[in-house]
């Protein structure tokens, strides 16, 4: 066990965990940030996507010992009032069915738009292809990413 100080959503948070603990479980079990979801544990489904220095990563396969001073953003910290353009678009398009994968989808989409504010349809497909939605809301996810791109400042 070791004590880690992590920069998460603009705050400094501490966790006393083993070095190989995936960031996902540190967030969920130790810091109470359960918006980041467990789907497969092997970086195949994208439900656990968070931002590490702005890049989308699979927190289920990212050990806490590798985080260092990197800035982590989770779905809880994407915006203060749930009004990030991607979140607003998700509501407007009414994307979710069961909703379980959507935090990961939103984090992937937000990372895409931060780097590519006006993506083509093909760029959206490519960026979002790593995130599984078992309910099959892909059309609406695609539509919401396109809509969010019109809302980006």
């Amino acid at each position: 066990m070791a004590n880690y100080t992590l920069q998460i959503n603009g705050r400094s948070l501490q966790a006393d965990v083993e070095a190989d603990t995936p960031l996902l479980w540190v967030l969920r079990d130790h810091l109470g940030l359960v918006g980041t979801k467990f789907g497969c544990g092997i970086a195949q489904c994208g439900a656990c996507t968070v931002h590490v220095n702005g890049n989308p990563i699979r927190s289920c396969s990212f050990p806490v010992s590798a985080v260092g001073a990197s800035k982590i953003t989770t779905i809880e910290g994407l915006s203060e009032h749930g009004d990030h353009p991607v979140q607003l678009a998700w509501d407007e398009v009414d994307v979710a069915q069961c909703g379980y994968c959507q935090a990961g989808q939103i984090m992937t989409a937000a990372a895409l738009l931060a780097k590519t504010p006006k993506p083509t349809g093909e760029q959206i497909d490519t960026a979002m292809n790593g995130n599984i939605c078992r309910c099959g809301t892909y059309h609406r996810i695609h539509e919401a990413v396109a809509l969010a791109s019109t809302k980006m400042k």
Partner: peptide, 28 residues
């Protein structure tokens, strides 16, 4: 067309699901 009543909670990562449930003293 009426939007999902849980939209706000789902898109901000609120604890909604069984896996998110926690009770003080609970074991895993």
């Amino acid at each position: 067309a009426v939007r999902n009543v849980d939209n706000k909670e789902m898109i901000t990562g609120k604890p909604l699901y069984g896996l998110d449930f926690y009770r003080e003293g609970m074991l895993f």
